[in-house]
């Protein structure tokens, strides 16, 4: 059982829980740090981005903010912070159902042998700010809606353009969000934007691994909680021979891990803690996924060579 297989199992389990949990009476609350999309009928929890834009977040009115409403909102934020403190970016790399969809598309591309459209790392760094702008939008627009400045249909603005809302409900038979909505100009505008972005994302996710995660505000928000996150990717710089395996194995093509020579913290903001780099690294102890001080999984020469892990034929390529 290699880490890659384990991650596959956890991803598919996460998919079932987040997408169909509600049908078994399971509900993880309104602050789930991954794309448990509330627009999926019978979902197993509510993605916190909706809560952030809704009445337990920036969308709550002044009346509610004064009393219990604020306590409820802070309560849900505490739940979110606790789950991120515990699992950190595992929510993105190991549990998020939308992440799994992207991995399916990439696996299809690999199977067909289509060349991956890799984004050069300087360009990737320049795209890094997009997710923080989206996060800012999530904080700015809802209060304007509640205050009545913006039309009511601007409610949940990010959900309005999130490809999760159009693609995830398909797995529960709901095609509504792939349709144009003529109710009014605002809903029409949002639905056209959503469908256009979904088209672009589908192509992007097929041609490049985890394309959407480059722009995901939830990844940005989770990364902002890095100081309190217990789970972290750590490197022992002076055991790294610079072979570049980590850069090739990384779905986000992060170069910070490969380039780091001084500090032991290589948890950059695009990193999803999927531990592909730790698997591919041939130097002992050079990379490790750590929970506080405990090394959950460290790089090992034997593992990279295929001796480690009890799977006899260790497939390094995906």
């Amino acid at each position: 059982m290699t880490v890659r297989n384990l991650r596959g199992i956890v991803q598919h389990a996460g998919f079932i829980v987040m997408m169909y949990g509600g049908r078994f009476g399971l509900h993880l609350g309104s602050a789930v740090p991954c794309f448990a999309c509330p627009f999926v009928p019978g979902c197993g929890g509510f993605c916190y981005l909706m809560g952030l834009q809704g009445y337990i977040g920036f969308g709550m009115g002044a009346a509610v903010a004064s009393g219990m409403g604020l306590v409820t909102a802070l309560g849900w934020f505490a739940v979110f912070a606790a789950s991120v403190a515990l699992l950190g970016k595992l929510w993105c790399g190991w549990i998020c159902p939308f992440g799994l969809i992207q991995d399916w598309l990439s696996a299809l591309r690999r199977h067909l042998g289509v060349r991956e459209r890799s984004i050069p790392y300087p360009v990737m760094r320049r795209l890094a700010w997009v997710k923080y702008v989206l996060l800012a939008g999530i904080a700015i627009i809802p209060p304007l809606v509640t205050a009545g400045i913006l039309h009511e249909d601007f409610y949940l603005p990010f959900c309005g353009i999130c490809p999760g809302k159009s693609l995830l409900p398909l797995f529960a038979g709901e095609t509504r969000y792939l349709a144009l909505n003529y109710d009014n100009l605002v809903t029409l505008g949002f639905s056209v934007a959503l469908i256009a972005i979904t088209g672009a994302m589908l192509v992007g996710m097929f041609l490049k691994d985890r394309f959407f995660c480059i722009f995901c505000p939830l990844l940005a928000f989770i990364h902002m909680l890095k100081p309190v996150t217990a789970l972290r990717l750590a490197k022992t710089p002076d055991t790294c021979v610079g072979c570049g395996n980590c850069r090739r194995a990384c779905p986000m093509e992060i170069e910070a891990v490969y380039r780091e020579r001084a500090s032991s913290d290589v948890q950059s903001d695009e990193c999803l803690d999927c531990a592909a780099c730790v698997e591919a690294c041939p130097s002992d102890f050079a990379l490790a996924l750590k929970f506080l001080k405990v090394k959950l999984f460290r790089s090992s020469r034997n593992y990279a060579a295929g001796i480690g892990g009890n799977s006899k034929k260790n497939e390094l390529s995906r």
């Binding site: 395996n245 850069r247 090739r248 390094l316």
Partner: peptide, 26 residues
């Protein structure tokens, strides 16, 4: 030889660039 070649992009170009990097940087 520098070791097992790991790659994620299994297109021909992906494998060729993985080989090039593994034998050069590694």
């Amino acid at each position: 030889f520098p070791g097992g070649v790991t790659y994620r992009d299994s297109s021909e170009f992906g494998m060729m660039s993985a080989l090039a990097q593994r034998y050069h940087q590694g």
